[in-house]
Nucleic acid binder design. Sequence first.
DNA 1: GTTATATTGGAATTATATGCTAAAAAATAA
DNA 2: TTATTTTTTAGCATATAATTCCAATATAAC
Lengths: 169, 169
Amino acid sequence: MPKESTPVVGVTLDRYDRQILDILQRHGRINNQELAERIGLSPSPCLRRVRALEDSGLITGYRALVDAKRLGHSLTALLHISMDRHTPERFANFEAKVAALPQVQECLLITGQEADYQLKVVVHDMDDYQNLLLNQITRIEGVTGAHSSFVLRRVLEHRPIPSYPAASQ
Amino acid sequence: MPKESTPVVGVTLDRYDRQILDILQRHGRINNQELAERIGLSPSPCLRRVRALEDSGLITGYRALVDAKRLGHSLTALLHISMDRHTPERFANFEAKVAALPQVQECLLITGQEADYQLKVVVHDMDDYQNLLLNQITRIEGVTGAHSSFVLRRVLEHRPIPSYPAASQ
DNA sequence: GTTATATTGGAATTATATGCTAAAAAATAA
DNA sequence: TTATTTTTTAGCATATAATTCCAATATAAC
């Protein structure tokens, strides 16, 4: 039935697989029976496909999303970090230190003259932020600069990655 | 048994609830029996607590994580957008246009002189990025500037939000 | 068109989720 | 501290779902 199947880095996906990816990215805890129903397959092949997607590494995990504000983390900030030297040791050390901070939601190594890393952090309030910044992050060896932006509103977040190869317009 | 229970914006969490949040943020598809086992409760009260956390809005959903690169999206960029005027209409229109673009993973309204929004986008390659930027995003009414950073490496991503009130050091 | 290969659907089995109730624990009041 | 009330739990019964197996079907190769 599925005619259109596209090979993607070793894995071949047909429309069933793509539907599974689309649905699981929005409803990660949907049960297999309903998933099967939605994509138009019976439960057994549907489950087999989900397992195959997991085993292939295309699905890397599942996460519950929680309301940070209701957990007392009212402030989200983007932190742009500059390093003095771009050596593997500097980077490895910084990354290890940052990984030990539970407030850090995300750490990206990025291009740009402005910064080497962008961190996304959640804290209770500005006092906690100041503490994190001054007592933890700027004390990491090699950090020469830090610029903060604060998140005023989360317009879009946790959106699904398109399961089809991006159309070039 | 749980002595330490903290009221957080209307919800009171004890150590069981916190454990549930911690585990589900890492293993969103764990089954209730194993979850119950891990937190040291029998399945029925465990499930009741999960449902309560969902109903209270503290757990806002579940997501499967997928490997963007293996889906053909090799390039991730951070896009900083400046607007000409800061009117509700401008913002609402921009946000609606951006929400219609599947490449946009995240859109945050932020502070800072540099930009009003930060977008996180995934695309197949630089050609697609150029196309997205020039033909879609910069054409949205009110957009006066766009600065791009590219993600070289994802050091940390999708980390759990701490379930305990942030310790002020 | 025929053969080989892969995938499906459905039944049987196993495992899990869910609702209920008595018992235990915790909180409150005396 | 003790009695009383309230809340929460554990365990059982039942409903629902996951998983395995295999014959039937579809797809691909020849």
